[in-house]
Amino acid sequence: MKGPALKIGVLGPYGAGKTTLVGTLSTTPVVSTEAPSSEGGKATTTVALDYGYLDLGSLGIHLFGTPGQPRFLDVLDVALQGALGALILVRADQPSQLPRARELRDYVTSVLGVPYLLGVTHMDKERRWEPREIALFMREPKERVLPVDPRDRDQAHRVLVRLVELACEEGGRCG
């Protein structure tokens, strides 16, 4: 591992692709905590955290994925302590999850107070909201809302790099 280290939180509603994204980006075996899901749509769900690591230039990036359901708020408080940037994933095809995404964005701005980006997943679905529509709903500038396929290393990498740039500009913790 190299220094300096940068901790990035990955948030988002249930089933947005957080665990997948951490798995795609991490170059070390991911520490994940999955339990069978009672809520459908997928087989398992994160109950504590997903931890992954990768080198980005001279930076060591520690990724902390979190559970999406509101009942895990306490976990967010613990898992995201010390995070210097946040990536919030939102599904393009489930507008019913947008209010939850907005709550998480508000959590990032009010509790963490760190730079963040919104990543729009499931963009391959026919019925979907475009990133600019999601930006409008979230009242975010459109450059903060980027499409990302969490299974695609290049796309995930691109969004992470943009977020790290923001974190470095605003936080000045990147050496």
Binding site: V31, S32, T33, E34, A35, V47, A48, L49, P67, Q69, R71, F72, L73, D74, V75
Partner: peptide, 16 residues
């Protein structure tokens, strides 16, 4: 409900 979520979290992390 909070305790239910925390119990699952500690069990999941504990297993790991």
């Amino acid at each position: 409900t909070r305790l239910a979520a925390m119990a699952a979290t500690s069990l999941g992390l504990g297993r790991r």
